[in-house]
Design a binder for these strands. Sequence first.
RNA 1: GGAGAGGUGGCAGAGUGGUCGAAUGUACCUGACUCGAAAUCAGGCGUAGGUGCGAGCCUACCGUGGGUUCGAAUCCCACCCUCUCCGCCA
Length: 442
Amino acid sequence: MQLITETNRNCPMLDIQLLRNQIDSVAARLATRGLVLDVAGFQALEDERKALQTRTQELQARRNALSKQIGMLKGKGEDATAVMAEVGQLGEELKACEQALPGLLERINDFASRLPNLPQADVPVGEDESGNVEVRRWGNPRQFDFELRDHVDLGAPLGLEFDTGARLSGSRFAFLRGPIARLHRALAQFMLDTHTLEHGYTECYTPYIVNREALYGTGQLPKFKEDLFWVLRGGDEEGLEQYLIPTAEITLTNSVREEVLTLDQLPIRLTAHSPCFRSEAGSGGRDVRGMIRQHQFDKVEMVQIVEPGKSDEALEQMVGHAEAILKKLELPYRVITLCTGDMGFSAARTYDLEVWLPAQNTYREISSCSNCEAFQARRMQARFKNAQGKNELVHTLNGSGLAVGRTLVAVLENHQQADGSILIPAALRPYMGGVERIEAPL
RNA sequence: GGAGAGGUGGCAGAGUGGUCGAAUGUACCUGACUCGAAAUCAGGCGUAGGUGCGAGCCUACCGUGGGUUCGAAUCCCACCCUCUCCGCCA
């Protein structure tokens, strides 16, 4: 019998020992995320598990010992029927135990798999985004001496077509044509080059369709299936379920899944430009106008795989890498620390970068950088051999650097001119064939 | 899609249904030798879980899931994946 089944082979996100031994402390920390942990329910399951597992193992030990005896007796040519009768008596209870245990373990695992990561101790406690704390600002929002337009109005004559997208695919899809399509491509290229040439990341091109295990590893499954698009292979409608990636974090982070890395391989810094697919199931009528919230958008993602002692430092660096893009693009932004109630499932600490959008007269999220500590590594079984030669879980971090669609929006709105043209920031011009401004084709 | 081969420890690679959790090599750790290192020699060295103050004892794990058996890495069934060749295809 196997205690580790397919579904629980990936350990729950929280250390199961922590749950067993310090459940009250875990409950208190999760409470800051607005989550009520069913301590009594968990402990009832645990008590049951402990009794059943102990009994199962007792019976197995007995069976193994007797079977070994049978082997020895038969080897010597002696009669083993008495021992075989004895082991036969164990059969029924053992079978019952072995059948009951996996289901119980599965329930415990499912319970634990749906618990989010524990916030770091100094993360501000808050219920929602109102509890987030601003860390710093960069740049001054521009004063306009003409009536400013939003990116939808600015983009329309430049090739930003929402009606075409809707006709092809439905709402929340955009079709880009001409100068705006080129600007979109230039932004992604510029970001990739900056991260690879200046920040030490290795460029990657990754699959956009992944299996369930990968999404479990980074924490999107089992809890957030409704946020994803899932796909089936043609001619194989009964077949394996796979998913479109909601971010390249999935593929970059899972690239070390089930690996035991050596110390000298760390840190690993990866970046990729990819489309991201999100069903936006829970977003209701939010941001229906424009390309702020799309089912498909491009993003340049940064991922770091580091030693546990170095992840805090790595997060600060990674935020700096994302900020560098905004600075080069001359886009005002602010950095905020997400409070406990606003953090994502896998994160122990998250900084959001919010770019100034003049037409909305506010800062909007354009990057999110998180330290997931060992949470994802535990689910992925991504480890390294530490200095003591022991396998230890790595720490994983991910951050957008940046969301390309929203960056496009920010460039349009912040660098718009009175005549509706867009001034291209100097850093981006080499990627635009030297063009200094884009304007509607005649 | 067709035909074949194969999935075993960090890696490589053995394994007649019965002390096989698994030979061997390599990597790694410790010790000896050395001024130091290399080489050499000796020892150690998988993961997870249970139980115990502890040395330890026990259970599970040889791609995944099921089956046969007193007993499965080994036999049977299904599935997944990888590789080679053919076909199709951007």
